[in-house]
Amino acid sequence: MIVPILQLELRRSRALVAWLVVVGLAYGGFMTAFYPTIRSNTTLVDQYLKVWPKELLAAFGLEGSLADPGVFFNTYIGSLLWPILASIGAILIATRAAADLDRGWIELPLSTPTPRARYLGASIAAQLVSLAVLAAACVGGVLAVGLLVGAPFEPGHFAIAALLAFAFGCGIASVTTLLSVVTLNRGTAGGLAAGIVIAMYLLEVVAKIEPDLAAIAAFSAFHYLEFAAVIDTGTFPWTDVAVFAGVSIVSWGFAVLVFRGRDLVA
């Protein structure tokens, strides 16, 4: 019973994921194509970057030399492209329960013997698959282009980075799912989720440029989305992945509980 719902949900996500993958590959590939140029002109690039305020560079996750593969990835992909793509994908897919209630679709599958928990479970499974494809495509695209242009990228390290990227996406999707079934309003849930992501981003930037407030970074998802060490050394980010996994499991679990027990009224 879960398979037809999963198949349909994946089909509904297909176009969105495809477009996000295209954007990710285009931007990631384009930036990566310039990586050898950046690397061979390290001194000039570093001099150029000194012109910019430290706070601005921190906001984009640029801490170190762009010639370093980890800093490069963190700057262009980890702190910019991936959060945007993951947020768009996660929010649009995870608010579907509320949207389907609004449009009256949800009554059709829930008029069948499909229990609510299984229905939402299938929807969450579709989120997982969509985010996995998106993370693999974006990170894999950078790796592929990098290898083509001769960048010293380690595929194993990128695999771990993809896992971290996926975990981050799951964190956003799970919280959005919870907001979606609590509010049963796509606009409200999506707006809240986007607001939370932006607030956490600002929190991270403030924590980076103001040492006295460094502790608040712990409340930001971006604090746990650090790719530099992963790409450079292949260190598995156990803590970061565990935080995202914990948030995801708890949020999705609560979402299922709420969805099972609440009135389905738009």
């Binding site: 389907d100 609004d102 449009r103 009256g104 679709w105 009554e107 059709l108 008029s111 013997p113 499909t114």
Partner: peptide, 12 residues
């Protein structure tokens, strides 16, 4: 729901 067939007034 195994024993009910339902048609809503305005299914989306």
């Amino acid at each position: 729901h195994r024993r009910i067939a339902h048609l809503g007034s305005d299914p989306g």
